[in-house]
Amino acid sequence: MSYIEFKNVDKYFGKQHVLKNLNLSVEKGQFVTLLGASGCGKSTLLRTLAGLTSINSGSIFLGGEDITYKSPNKRNIGMIFQQYSLFPTMNVYNNVSFGLRMRKMNKDQIFSLVSNAIKMVNLEGSEKKYPSQLSGGEQQRVALARCIVTQPKVLLLDEPFSAIDAKLRKSLQSRIKEIHKELGMTSIFVTHDQDEAMTMSDYIYLMNNGVIEQGANPLELYSRPATLFAAGFIGDYNILDGKDFSEIIGNGYYKSKVAFRPEMILASREPFDLSEESVRFSGVISDMIPQGSIIRYHVKAGKTKLIVDVLFNKEEFFDINEQVYFEIAKDHIMQF
């Protein structure tokens, strides 16, 4: 049995079926992300593990124990919310020590554990400050310290960086990942941001409309999406009708839908040589968007529009309205 297991979990909000016979497992020490669009059920799933939302049927196991009906204060699970949720009446020290004080630990032990946790999140010297005197990033670090100080069985992170600016988000992401490794924790992270999921996770569960669409490690999810939804959600796959695609490549036969990544397409001013392993087409550049190390070209091939990513090379740019030749290996074309 895995460290965390959801077995046939169903959750309804009124008539709305939010989690649909869901099965999921997480191994000890993993950093797992629940990725999906708003309203897909990922936060509800997290809350059911924390005990903050009850389930209608199924079971939840943590460390081999059935915790389905256990109250949240007895589960020893830490959770970081999007809105920080620090106790406004308590200073940083009292916020961080709250969980230990509720467990009636002795003061010396509390002092030592709290000082260590505050040090881990680089907030030494802010012990006497109140939440209203801290920035968003600092408040989230206090929330992190408040969770890790109680050494929870699982750390849950419910979109913790949504309200934090991009630069600070990056440093917080890496700090959380470091702490996760240092303490050998098991963490479940909820986000709608695929880049964040890729950066942080050992394993990603992609959710859609109350079901797990695909569970895979980040590289596999990126390169081998199992469903059309996964292909559409992860990265910027070109998703085309098989008929349209067959039309632009001139030979070959593709049915239903095809999907391929924009960086897997080779581009050239000269036509490519014929090959059994690849397909070729030509198109006209309709737009060019520099995106740091790559340049994204919007291409019109017949009636079909697609995107092509090319590594930035100052020697060679394609011009708008220029006719360009493209090639893509058959291996990289997925059919659904």
Binding site: L52, P72, N73, K74, S85, R146
Partner: peptide, 14 residues
């Protein structure tokens, strides 16, 4: 704020 009560509960408070 509901999260405050939920946080307290998750931190072990009765």
């Amino acid at each position: 704020e509901q999260n405050l009560i939920e946080s307290a509960s998750l931190l072990g408070a009765s």
